[in-house]
Amino acid sequence: MFVIVIIAIWEVISKAGIFPTFMFPPLIIPSVPGGVTVLKTLVGGVMSGQILAATGVTLSRLLIGFLIAVVLGLTFGFLIARFKWVDDTLGYFVTALQSIPSIVWFPLAIVWFGLGNTAILFIVAIGATWTMTVNSSAGFKNVPSIYINAARTLGSSGSHLLRTVILPASVPHIISGLRVAWAFAWRAIMAGELLGAAGGLGYLLDLGRSTQAMDLVLSIMIVIGLIGTIIDNQVFLRMERSVARKWGLRT
């Protein structure tokens, strides 16, 4: 309902002729017969494969960067929780690192890796690593000692204890970490692709800007919004809910 109202208002403004069509293209109903609409560009772009291909490029970069961040975040988180001196050094530093927007790393990334895939992966990974670290270390630190003690008296120790008790007991924290880290990675990759790197949705956005094709820009914004929502709802919210159900936590 809310969406329909927004669309209606948009259409009215667009048709009122306050702005030129290229700046404020109509969403569904063309202003002149056969003229551009965002819907047409979106459908056309998806059909021709242009938007699909770009989405594929973006998602695969995102996935790789995100996975790197998750592995690093879990490792750092574990070390921080396990060793006091790592907590005093890295643990302290991570809070500062976390407050740096990942795009700030971009100049460095370009110098280090050149303008391209690696630089993008770098800022995606670095954008998500620190939140993942903070969340996972909180998860590991807050494992109730009763679980650890119970497991130890039942014969568990070392890596068995880590795998069967400490990791699973941290799962609720880790999942919320994944969710936030994903959101950070998603923002980082858009910023990165917009600033440079061939292919990807961010690059298409930049293309749309330079050719003054706001219909393309809006189409891509819609795609970005949709993907973000779908992944959050279908992947992370579901994970959170299923863990909450299994553990009997309140949702």
Binding site: I146, A150, K246
Partner: peptide
């Protein structure tokens, strides 16, 4: 082997 007040069962 210990039985704790709150049982200490693994909820997962």
């Amino acid at each position: 082997v210990v039985v704790f007040q709150e049982g200490g069962l693994f909820p997962w």
